[in-house]
Computed example of a mutant assay.
Amino acid sequence: MLRVGERVRHEIAALLARNEIIDPLLETVTVTVPEVRMTPDLKLANVYVMPLGGENAEDVVSALNAHAKFIRGRITPALDLKYAPQFRFFVDKTFDEYGRIDAILRSERVQRDLASDDDGED
């Protein structure tokens, strides 16, 4: 599953880089594909995307979902799988999670706890 997901990720990223999808919104943004999660039967690919800067993320995902059949037709021959997976696009929330965790780690309360641990080790 991981290997196929990574292959799908590379193919979708290459397709988006070539601007083969005719859509006014998609032609104006750069989209990254951080992760693709395949179902165990390899028939469904959940594709997580994020436009550069994070602006209009929901609109970009809607546009990609609208063009999912086109994307499937362009990518499937390169995958050489028994079944052509269906693609569902989602906004990648991991960047938000990283930011939230970083903010917690930098908070005064955590820094105070870390400082008190350092003092106790001497």
Rank of each mutant, 00 (worst) to 15 (best):
R37L: 13
N56D: 04
R72Q: 15
Y83R: 09
D59H: 11
R112C: 00
S62G: 10
A57T: 00
A45I: 10
Y48G: 14
P40K: 05
R88M: 04
N56Y: 11
D96V: 06
D122I: 08
A115K: 10
D119E: 13
F90E: 02
E58K: 09
P51D: 07
D113S: 09
T94C: 05
F95I: 12
R72C: 13
E35M: 13
L42Y: 12
T39E: 06
G73S: 12
V110A: 12
K93C: 08
D118R: 15
A68C: 04
T76Y: 12
F87N: 01
I101M: 14
D102I: 10
D92H: 03
H67Y: 01
F70N: 04
P85S: 00
E35I: 02
A78K: 15
F90H: 13
L52Y: 14
V91E: 02
P34C: 03
E108M: 02
D119H: 15
R88H: 14
L81G: 04
F70A: 00
V60C: 11
L42T: 09
L64D: 08
A57L: 13
E108Q: 14
L64P: 02
T76L: 01
K93P: 11
G54M: 10
L114M: 15
Y83K: 14
M38K: 07
V49T: 14
E108F: 03
P40S: 05
N46K: 15
F87G: 09
L52F: 13
G120K: 11
V60S: 03
V47N: 06
D80S: 11
I104Q: 07
K43F: 00
R100P: 03
A78R: 12
A66K: 12
P51C: 02
A63L: 02
K82W: 08
V49N: 01
A66P: 00
R74C: 08
L52E: 14
G73V: 05
Y98H: 06
G53Y: 09
R72H: 06
I71F: 09
L105N: 12
V49Q: 01
V36M: 10
R72V: 09
P51A: 01
E58V: 11
L44D: 10
T39Y: 07
K69A: 14
D118H: 13
R112V: 03
D113E: 15
L42C: 11
D59R: 13
G54W: 02
G53S: 06
V60H: 00
P51W: 00
L105K: 14
K82A: 07
A103L: 04
V47I: 04
A63P: 00
N46M: 02
R106L: 12
I101G: 07
A66T: 04
D117Q: 08
F90D: 02
